[in-house]
Amino acid sequence: MSLAEANFQDIVAAYYESTGAARAARYLQDEIDLKHTGQLAVLLRDYREREVDSPTEIELRADVDDLMICCDILEIAIAAGFIGMPNGTHFWVTTNDILENPQVQQYYMKFYPLKLPQLLRFRLRGLYEQVADDPNALVRPVMQFLAMDKRFMKTLNDGYLLRMLDAFEIKGIKDWDFEDIVKIVGQPEEFVRRILLPPEKRDIPDQALHEFSLFLQFSFELHALLNELNEFPLIRSEMWSHYGYWFEIIGDEVKDQLGIALSQFLNWTPGSNTPKAAGEIQGYVRKAQDVLAALTSPTNALAVDSVLKEIRTSNPENGDKRGFVR
């Protein structure tokens, strides 16, 4: 068995074939081949310039986002030596065509800046070949990362909480936003009642509360994993960049909002039979706030940013001055 090939097939099965990524790749490749430049530019526009409300467009853009997520994971896996370098197979040729397309580039470099697809593009052009010296040392962290990311994608990525943290209101019988969740966290009895509801009886705020707990658990795990990778700054920075939207682009907002929700726990008053409870709650809240502060620190971006900057400096014709490197 070729291990690198089996790992590659596993990643492609999980992030390409089982998501909208494969659909997006087929669609984009067809549009590129047909030179439908205008259509691509419309589909992949900046939503701040013109709203995206057509269900077909929403679905196609979600598929393109899945494809970008797949590119993230492939880049991390290559950098860690978990899979081989891109070769001339149909999959990589298609990926290269898509990442080289100017309209697609505008989408992932300017409108919704994503760093790892940019790195992958440089790899495909032969401008970036860095791979970990000792891939064996990274097997465990990479497998842990993939397991963790799978849970993130399944439970959080399309959930209510992250959309609320991104300033969206969720429409139900009434409209819910993150302030409503903060209020519930401030009421112990209501909080306990809602978290004990079985999944089939959960309404929007109940599900968001559940995701609040899951997101904090995920943050603790990611923080611990990144700490284990201090000797591998580039891989560490790449894994963190995979969650760059939440911890970098809107990181301050995420940290502040979750911090407010967490501070509500400090007002909970335990009964007299649990004298250590206040200390336990304070300890948890402090630890969670520290973890969120560490995860939203810009220093996490440094290694990836410096690689991108170096490639652009050495190859100005391949850079994009509109890119996201600070």
């Binding site: 112990p188 306990v192 978290i195 707990s213 904090l216 726990f265 649990t274 336990e280 948890y284």
Partner: peptide
């Protein structure tokens, strides 16, 4: 278990 916040067991 239902919440993931361990201290909630105290309530």
């Amino acid at each position: 278990a239902a919440s993931g916040f361990k201290f909630v067991r105290l309530f």
